[in-house]
Design a protein around this nucleic acid. Structure first.
Lengths: 205, 205
DNA sequence: CAAAAAATCCCCTAAAAACAGGAGAAGAAC
DNA sequence: GTTCTTCTCCTGTTTTTAGGGGATTTTTTG
């Protein structure tokens, strides 16, 4: 039984690298690739792969969003996140969205094959270097936000004041103020500037 | 006359992609690759390539530094920068260091070959999409900041208040206030939140 | 050198955000 | 059926930013 493999990555060189490594493998059925989230979703309407290798950074949506969307529509698909060293903070959110594993972009052919094999057995595959770094980062990094907090964070980043947000969300300004306090506390920062910088860097906005 | 080609990139998939695309080309002599700046410099002590494809992001030094160092020691070598879409701001600095060209990581085989050919003729090769985006970035979105404004912007993003920045930069708080006003005006935004979001997205911070 | 740009400083007022501390209600989780 | 989380709201005070002016002194640059 061949594994139907699909890639979503905006870098042709990466796609070509994976293709060159895996195309000749007997257990891999190379379905193709997409450069962005839209093309990926469009492809999935006609074909259903077994495994999708998905870059965290895409030109239109973030891989995190795309992962959530894909798994909501096609729960049977296994998604393996792809990332570079300095983006490990995103991985845990990708796993939260239901991804089955992740690889670093410097993975060898053997490691990619192992990852695909592992997730096909309904187990999780975490690249060694990356899971080590995640362990290290676990404490400090990306906070867990509630629905409302995420919403408020987004609106702050759009430039709205507490009064404007209160009106938009049909709550009191003091409520917004509370959400802000919680955001500052969760990100462990003391003002909006750093909050928005971190939130932007961590792709919350 | 074959072109001796060397790659510096920390992502195995990218190296494999380029190798797979170019190895069979008769005019290319595939010398090999390095994962980081140190390995690259070490390799250059034994061999001198004609063209180096160099990633902007490396684990040890930045590609920009490495580019400067390599060209200082081996002025005859042609360096072509490699980058992704969201790192265009680094390219101009790479060109300042003497790079002969740059490519985006989604470049096709034909484009890579054209770039190599072009720089071997002692001309500069700039990828189309990227030079367009650089042009865009120059005019519309990214404002031109003065030295002091950049400095203040950075400190705001670090979370400092006007008083703290004034102390750090040995000026009055009202001066900082003025720089802030200019920043808001230049970015055409009404508060710090949007300022920092845009500045982060545009890689000012 | 003259003109433009950048950096510096000042006034004032109003608005917004941060800090502190508490508290009730609804729903989910155990 | 209690505990935890989330969302909601409150009263205050203090700090920080934003907005609107204006002005002087260095640097750059044509």
């Amino acid at each position: 039984m061949k594994t139907k493999l699909f890639i979503v990555d905006d870098h042709y060189m990466v796609i070509e690298g994976i293709r060159s490594m895996l195309e000749q493998e007997p257990q891999i059925d190379w379905l193709g690739y997409a450069y962005n989230a839209a093309a990926c979703l469009s492809y999935l309407r006609t074909q259903t792969p077994d495994v999708i290798l998905m870059d965290i950074n895409l030109p239109d949506t973030s891989g995190i969003e795309l992962c959530g969307e894909v798994l909501q529509r096609y729960p049977g698909v296994k998604v393996i996140g792809l990332s570079t060293f300095n983006q490990l903070s995103f991985i845990s959110r990708m796993l939260d969205k239901g991804a089955s594993g992740y690889l670093l972009k410097n993975a060898s052919k053997a490691e990619i094959l192992k990852a695909i094999e592992t997730v096909m057995q309904r187990r999780q595959y975490l690249s060694l270097e990356a899971s080590e770094m995640i362990k290290k980062n676990e404490t400090a990094d990306a906070p867990v936000l509630t629905r409302r907090e995420t919403e408020v964070l987004q609106l702050i980043a759009e430039g709205m004041t507490n009064a404007e947000m209160a009106e938009r969300l049909f709550v009191s300004t003091t409520t917004i103020d509370t959400h802000r306090k919680h955001l500052l506390a969760k990100f462990n920062v003391k003002n909006t500037a750093v909050l928005i910088r971190l939130a932007t860097q961590m792709k919350f906005v």
